[in-house]
C-alpha cells in the first residue's frame, strides 16, 4: 500500500539521535564524529577521553547513544556502563573493544549493553553499528555471541566445580589452604592453629585428594582458580 504523502514526508525527516563518544584515542573519536556527520540520523554532542568525564557528560547531556571504549583511563568502560544502568539513564550503549574476549562480551550482555563492535571492524562497520543501536537494534556478531556462550559455560562450570569442592572441604581444610596460599610452611600453619605438623600433613593429604592434585602449589593454584581462597596478602 502507498503511504500518504504527508507520512512519507515525515518519514524522510529523520529523528536526530544525539551521540556522546568516549575514547582515550583521538583517532577513534574522530571516526565516530565523522560517522555522525555522514549520517542523517546521528548528531555528535559530546566527547570525553576518560570514564569519569564520560559519566558526567551522560548525566548532563542525556544522549541517546553512548559510544564507549572499554579500555579507559580513570574509570573503565564496563564501570561506566554499570553506573549508567544503576542510575537508570535512558542511554543506549555501543561498546568499542580492542579484541573479542568472552569475559568482556558476557559482561556487556549482563549490563544490557546493546551493541559490541571491535575497533578493527573498520569505519563502515562502526558507523553501521552506531546507526543500528541508536535506532533500537542490538549488534553482536556471531563470533561475539559464540564467545559469550562459551564464557557462560565457563561460569557455570566454575560455579559448579567450586560449589562441589567447597561443600567437600571442611572449614579447617579451607583455613589451612588459605594459609598455604599466603606462603606459610606446614610448621607455621601448625603453630598458628596450635596443632602438630603431623596433623597438618594429614589435613593436606585429604585436601590433595579432594582437589585432585599432587603438590602444594597445585592445590593452592586450583583452590585460587575456584575462588575458594584469596591469594592477596592482607
Amino acid at each position: 500500500m502507498q503511504a500518504p504523502a504527508d507520512t512519507e514526508a515525515r518519514r524522510r525527516q529523520p529523528v536526530l539521535r544525539r551521540v556522546v563518544v568516549v575514547d582515550d584515542h583521538p583517532v577513534l573519536r574522530g571516526v565516530v564524529r565523522l560517522a555522525c556527520n555522514a549520517s542523517p540520523t546521528l548528531e555528535a554532542v559530546g566527547e570525553a577521553e576518560d570514564g569519569r568525564t564520560a559519566l558526567e557528560l551522560c548525566r548532563r547531556l542525556k544522549p541517546d547513544l553512548l559510544v564507549l571504549d572499554l579500555l579507559l583511563p580513570e574509570m573503565g568502560g564496563l564501570e561506566v556502563a554499570r553506573v549508567v544502568r544503576e542510575e537508570g539513564l535512558p542511554i543506549r550503549i555501543l561498546a568499542l573493544s580492542g579484541r573479542t574476549d568472552g569475559k568482556v562480551v558476557l559482561e556487556c550482555m549482563r549490563l544490557d549493553v546493546e551493541g559490541f563492535v571491535r575497533k578493527t571492524a573498520g569505519v563502515q562497520a562502526i558507523s553501521e553499528a552506531m546507526e543500528l543501536v541508536a535506532a533500537g537494534g542490538r549488534v553482536y556478531s556471531a563470533d561475539e555471541e559464540r564467545e559469550a556462550v562459551a564464557e557462560l559455560g565457563r561460569v557455570a562450570r566454575h560455579v559448579h566445580d567450586a560449589d562441589g569442592v567447597a561443600s567437600a572441604l571442611t572449614p579447617r581444610e579451607t583455613e589451612i589452604l588459605q594459609m598455604l596460599g599466603h606462603g606459610l610452611t606446614m610448621r607455621q600453619v601448625g603453630n598458628r592453629l596450635g596443632i602438630s605438623p603431623r596433623t597438618v600433613e594429614t589435613h593436606i593429604a585429604k585436601l590433595y585428594r579432594k582437589l585432585d592434585v599432587r603438590t602444594r602449589v597445585q592445590a593452592v593454584a586450583r583452590a585460587a582458580a575456584l575462588g575458594l581462597i584469596d591469594l592477596e596478602d592482607r
Binding site: 558476557l106 550482555m109 549482563r110 544490557d112 555471541e145 559469550a148 556462550v149 557462560l152 561460569v155
Partner: peptide, 13 residues
C-alpha cells in the same frame, strides 16, 4: 534469544 545470555549468567550467580 541471545538477549537472554546476560540474564542466564546472572541467574547462575
Amino acid at each position: 534469544p541471545m538477549e537472554w545470555v546476560g540474564a542466564i549468567a546472572d541467574g547462575i550467580e
